[in-house]
Design a protein around this nucleic acid. Structure first.
Lengths: 246, 246
DNA sequence: ATGACGATTATGTATATACATATTGAAACG
DNA sequence: CGTTTCAATATGTATATACATAATCGTCAT
């Protein structure tokens, strides 16, 4: 991982970008501490010899990113770091496994189409009955089970799923590409493996597992609920917090 | 929680905002599916009866948010949903406990100032030796232990921490407000409680725990490494993914 | 056919300008 | 002395304009 060294004459960046990263740098380095008033737009206009619009765009962006706060008549101020929020990347399991240099394989354990029961509706957040598809499967990294997946698909939202076997392809990648932009909620917790899980993952009952549950909506409609269960040793989630690039 | 009902005549939003949310809505609802070419700037200019700059600002923002992709000469296209990223809110533990309606209390178990050893340097990501402060403490929710905290503070970066006892205030809230904007990396995993942890949290050895580790840098300098250990039942992390508001 | 080239087109960036709006500080007033 | 009023000021939003840049398409010569 070699970063491109700052070329002295790399003048390919726009002025807007330069103003933005200059100020960002001053804030992150602590040169301008929280509460500090950063120069007025007209001062930056003079400093960078550009129009106010250009400066304004940069500052608005920093404000949207939460690094500064802008107050009419008073100026712009460095905000104090607030509630730590981190961005959690949740890749497809295939990607994760292949990143480990291991061959990936998916194997379906169970497939069941049924009218939704109360439990299904609770998991999906559905208020009315309808058909659901219940899937269980295993993701392998090489010969070892990597994650156990329990999924519920709302067939009212994705009818075509009813025609798929999901024998060797997991529903996750299948759903992406078929369902438009969606919202999701994740819940992450630790859990002791019960009989079913221990059996599937080939670990001892009671062994600690990491559980990631995801509920997905598209255009306000519940699409799927999925639970990934990882043996504790096999998986660590990584989240980064970098004061937004704007 | 009552949301303000959409007032018919709420014309307080800027045109820029209206264009932005109009298009966003069309994408999220699936009206404009991934791959669809959205109207050219000059078409939107006509539709909204505004200048190209205004339209351009809105589209640029959607592009930055990752919802659309812009190609010169070709137009702007709805992107297909990519790697699921979710925003994980990591609140102060006091906040979490109080949200449960329980009284919060912190209790220090150990405080140790020493010259960094190899293990310390590995955890903090330090290359040179120096003083570190090692802390262990318990966060209580009511009478029950809620989380066990193991922390390492780089005293070269935050010298004042050496003068603090951290008897009844955790180092986390103390550090915020003293350290400017920072970067952080989180690792989340499941773990079986060892003797020390089981003892501190008053749970059985081997019981599953959720572990959140955070490394923090400020202006490239390692500041602190902290490990929060939660009994599996007491804690669930929640992360949301909403296609960026731009 | 094939490849080179130039015109066309949509976006990218920047400017100068205008007026709206919120807030502050000072002057005017009771 | 406290309150009201008003002008000054920094930001917020929008316009019209200009030129740069990248990609595409059609034309033309080979």
């Amino acid at each position: 991982m070699v970063e491109p060294t700052d070329m002295e004459d790399s003048e390919t960046v726009s002025l807007h970008q330069r103003i933005l990263s200059d100020i960002r740098e001053k804030i992150l380095s602590g040169t301008w501490a929280p509460g500090h008033r950063i120069p007025f737009e007209h001062e930056l206009t003079a400093e960078y010899k550009c129009s106010r619009m250009t400066v304004n765009k940069a500052l608005s962006q920093l404000a949207k990113a939460g690094l500064i706060e802008r107050r009419r008549r008073s100026g712009s101020f460095v905000r104090r770091p607030q509630s730590q929020a981190a961005v959690l990347e949740l890749h497809d399991i295939r990607i994760e496994v292949e990143a480990l240099g291991l061959p990936y394989r998916y194997e379906r354990l169970e497939r069941l189409q049924r009218r939704s029961n109360a439990g299904d509706r609770a998991l999906l957040g559905l208020s009315t009955a309808g058909s659901v598809l219940r899937l269980e499967g295993l993701h392998f990294a090489g010969e070892r089970p990597f994650a156990f997946e329990q999924r519920l698909i709302n067939l009212s939202a994705v009818a075509e799923a009813g025609d798929e076997a999901f024998l060797e392809i997991a529903a996750g990648p299948w759903l992406i590409g078929r369902v438009p932009w969606s919202e999701a909620e994740h819940r992450i917790r630790a859990m002791a493996a019960d009989e079913t899980i221990a059996d599937a993952l080939d670990i001892d009952p009671g062994a600690p597992c990491l559980v990631v549950e995801r509920r997905t909506w598209s255009a306000e409609h519940p699409v799927t609920h999925v639970r990934f269960i990882y043996p504790a040793e096999s998986h660590t989630l990584v989240a980064r917090f970098t004061p937004s690039q704007g």
